[in-house]
Design a protein around this nucleic acid. Structure first.
Lengths: 258, 258
DNA sequence: GCAAAAGTGTTATTCTTACACCCATGA
DNA sequence: TCATGGGTGTAAGAATAACACTTTTGC
């Protein structure tokens, strides 16, 4: 077997992102979490799929770097972006004890982007989330729960990001980031159901959401449905009249857009 | 005003740690959270207090690096160690727009160490947690809720670590990390009360702890108390008979040392 | 016996959860 | 009018919290 004493010459600091969007599963047809992966065109792990990312620019913040790589590979602007973890163990790019290139410390972010019927406004142009770079089949969206073999330790990274998203969805109010400016409670519930992979009681879901004070009715109704038109809601940033004992948690650098 | 266009020449990757111990407050006498800080002996921020840390070694994992710096400054071995956040914004070592040295990306950990009457076993020698390096007054333990001015962005980092510890204590089972191998429920409750800064009902606390299945009676009693001798408990790693639906959360690289 | 902490029991309250039921619309 | 999802009501069960009470020791 290969020796463990090979010393990488240099240390590279990279930023990668696990980008989540909701798309219909090609197997079941139900909405499920998908992530974009990029085909590696050089060693190590040439040919395998990897998370979008790249080296940190000297003049950019960590979150900026994540957003830049995200934009360049998916042409999307994230509605939610949060740091996940810094992966930097000495042998994380080794396979069977064989060193694969320089030592890389990856600061990984996770992001949510809009998808499906609710389209994305990006630099004035409305783009659907499933539009990949034209003519570029080096980026594909895959079901986050049915991953192929990924490069480096990216399989574990995605598993951790999935766990984080699912955990956070239950105590936080981030589901709206998958949707557009206005949405019905049924759409919001559909997001929760797709992420958590279980059905939720519509009545209790409504009360749970209303209790958080995270949404407010816009006053308009969604027309064109086959049945009773549902109210349209919008997300409210700071629910002032909510529970007084709420934690103003000093989470660093968590950014939301619209 | 200073220009924002100064380009740092190089990028340094460092590892720092917020180390928590419980010690009696010099003001109130009650147990409260304390952290060790190191006096900076060079620019930038010379003379100010800073978190223990230093550059990442090419041959060590991130957690290893945190543990190494922790040991060299406090002579303690942490009973709990977890990554907190990677701080790497471009201007995090600027003051009033003035650049202070090279750009540093800090991967920050937080740790718990034993203290007080429960001493620490380290390389066979029992040391109390309040023993600093002999003759070294460049390390002091300060109350985490009464910080002086710290170097860099370390004030915000400590605030975030404090929030993280207090949040995690309520849904996790880490309080025992402040104590020795065996402890009474009153001691465990004292830890919770000191960290959360509020009194807890002994009866409900007992039931809450028992419900988690995280401790078990050792069969021995603590003698020498002025009143009824309490049972001594020990921490159990994997409460197998606990709730079946527990999440096997894939948190990366969280290490505990009994 | 008395004081004080260890430990148990009991009840009120709030939070979930399940599900029955009414409402409003298109076809 | 009927089918269907939107939306409201209600009650059982579980988790939380407050506190009375019994137990066991040192003094």
């Amino acid at each position: 077997m290969a020796t463990n004493d090979e010393h990488p010459a240099s240390l590279v600091l990279a930023v990668s992102t696990v980008i989540f969007a909701l798309r219909p599963s090609t197997r079941t047809g139900k909405m499920s979490l998908h992530i974009p992966v990029v085909r590696r065109i050089r060693e190590p792990y040439e040919g395998l799929w990897a998370l979008p990312g790249g080296p940190l620019g000297m003049q950019e913040d960590l979150g900026e770097s994540a957003r830049r790589h995200l934009l360049s590979t998916t042409h999307l602007d994230p509605t939610y972006l949060e740091q996940l973890y810094a992966f930097g163990d000495r042998d994380r790019s080794r396979t069977n004890g064989i060193a694969r290139g320089d030592r890389v410390v990856s600061i990984v972010y996770w992001a949510l982007v809009r998808s499906g019927p609710g389209a994305v406004e990006y630099s004035g142009i409305v783009r659907p989330a499933d539009e990949v770079v034209p003519g570029d089949d080096n980026v594909v969206w895959i079901d986050a729960d049915e991953l192929p073999e990924l490069a480096f330790d990216h399989t574990e990274i995605v598993a951790y990001a999935l766990w984080r998203l699912r955990t956070k969805l239950e105590y936080s109010r981030i589901a709206h980031s998958f949707l557009g400016e206005m949405f019905t409670l049924a759409q919001l519930r559909e997001v929760h159901e797709a992420v958590l992979r279980r059905e939720l009681d519509p009545a209790n879901f409504r009360r749970m959401i209303e209790a958080t004070g995270s949404v407010e009715p816009t006053g308009t109704l969604l027309q064109g449905t086959p049945h009773r038109p549902p109210k349209l809601y919008r997300y409210v940033e700071n629910p002032a009249e909510s529970t007084p004992g709420q934690t103003p948690h000093p989470t660093p650098a968590t950014k939301e857009r619209s």
